[in-house]
Amino acid sequence: MENSYVDSNVSLSFDFINKLPLLKTLILWYQQIGNDDINNKDKHGFLKDFIDTITNNLIKSSSRFRYSDTIKNFALSLYILGGKLTYEFVRLNLPGSLPNLTMLNTLISTSNAKNSEAEFRFHQLQKHFDELNVQYEFGSEDATSIIKKIKYDSTTNTYNGFATPLDRGVPIKEYYQTDSFDKLKLWFNSNDKSSLLNVHMIQPVQSTNQTIIPSPFLLSAYGIDNTATANDILQRWWYIFNQCLQRNIRIIGFSTDADAKY
């Protein structure tokens, strides 16, 4: 229930406004952007939405907080780029500004933003290319060190964090699925945990009539233990090339670091 002392028809006196410098500045700023042309309004669109969200939510109970699509997208970006601790630091210090973690996890699970380990997202890649109206791309592959740990994914009943087995160079999705405690114990005792995260990125090549470089796309990510051979990598790249070709997407090259296997 909203606070009873909030009157939607309240009128503010000049004396009251002058006693609150922040309120006075906000009113002047809103007047300024209200008189701006369409380009400047777009420039300040997110900031206005952010301020509106905070002020609208502060007069409600937390169970009735509401967020626009713009704020939800910003929240997802902040969580992905900054991590959980950064996200919570911002959210708790700016009450009403961002969705709580429960709502954020719901957004992730329903926005197709959650990736399963070793899943190659060719279907989403095709949609991405259709939206950008491009056809050519560069593929890249690289690995980065990670902390060794096993995590259970309840949505797929899979244990992530073990080194992903390869089938002709291609990682096997959801390999570590079991309802047997003995099998899980065997994996912990005999299988290596991933020491590296292998990531495949796709960079669309802009067409001649485009002035903005298209955004890259995360194709797949999975844990490895650095035992793959050069032949495994070549077979994996051939697999990616053919899967893209079937979707009328042409890979014109692969890029990676100076590892001898490549």
Rank of each mutant, 00 (worst) to 15 (best):
A113R: 13
V205P: 07
N56V: 11
L219N: 07
N40M: 11
N157K: 10
P99H: 08
M1W: 12
E131G: 05
I252G: 07
S195N: 15
T211F: 10
L219G: 01
L218V: 12
F254W: 06
D259P: 10
L12N: 11
K24Y: 08
T70W: 05
L166T: 02
N248D: 14
I251T: 07
G96E: 04
E88D: 14
I172K: 11
T158P: 03
I233M: 13
I38L: 15
Y79N: 03
Q126N: 06
I172N: 02
Q135I: 09
F138A: 02
E131N: 10
L184P: 00
I71T: 02
G161I: 11
K127T: 08
L22V: 10
T211I: 15
L196D: 05
V199K: 10
S109K: 10
G223P: 00
P204V: 11
N112I: 09
Y79C: 00
Y67P: 00
T155D: 15
G82S: 02
S220W: 05
T53E: 00
I80V: 01
Q206W: 13
Y222S: 00
L94Q: 12
L218E: 05
K72P: 07
T256Y: 12
P21D: 11
L23E: 01
V134D: 03
M103R: 09
Q235P: 08
Q235L: 14
F241T: 06
T53M: 07
K183W: 07
R250M: 09
T256E: 02
F162C: 02
F241L: 10
I224W: 05
I147H: 15
I252R: 09
L23D: 04
S207P: 08
K173D: 06
K261Q: 14
I251W: 05
L81S: 13
L22H: 07
S97I: 01
